[in-house]
């Protein structure tokens, strides 16, 4: 089956990203397909390349990248929700006159239309918030 995930919980604030990652790995292990993960609301913070948790805690940013590398899962981040919260790619940082950026590939800034497309395309769509 085609699955899609919506992550709206912030890292280290909500257990939602951890639950979403466990669910993603489990469904993939069962032979299902994961069409994409969309990060919205506080979930956009999962995409920050500047997160640096202590060594005894999972680096969620890196955990998502690992999921992407192992299974080629698109990691889409709502651009409006990200910019509002101080998360920007190099291109967006330039556009807004900011000195630095914290969103890099494989995370992609995209519009909400992508969320709706993902939901419509998937057989199952699950929110983690």
């Amino acid at each position: 089956m085609e699955y899609g995930l919506l992550v709206m919980g912030a890292p280290y604030t909500s257990p939602a990203p951890h639950s979403a990652l466990r669910f993603a790995h489990t469904l993939l292990a069962q032979g299902h397909h994961l069409s994409g993960v969309f990060f919205y609301h506080e979930g956009v913070h999962n995409a920050s390349s500047l997160m640096a948790p202590p060594q005894d805690e999972l680096n969620l940013h890196d955990a998502w990248i690992e999921l992407h590398r192992a299974h080629n899962i698109p990691l889409d981040v709502c651009i409006a929700a990200a910019l509002r919260r101080g998360l920007a790619s190099e291109a967006e940082a330039l556009r807004h006159g900011k000195a630095s950026f914290n969103i890099d590939a494989p995370f992609e800034l995209t519009g909400l239309g992508q969320l709706l497309t993902l939901q419509q395309r998937c057989d199952r769509f699950i929110t983690f918030a």
């Binding site: 919205y40 609301h41 409006a80 929700a81 509002r84 519009g111 909400l112 239309g113 969320l115 709706l116 419509q120």
Partner: peptide, 19 residues
């Protein structure tokens, strides 16, 4: 929280896409 705004934004985008 910002959930209301971000929820309504989703509805507006869906409607703009003809859903």
């Amino acid at each position: 929280s910002n959930l209301l705004r971000e929820g309504v934004d989703t509805a507006l985008v869906a409607a703009a896409f003809g859903q």
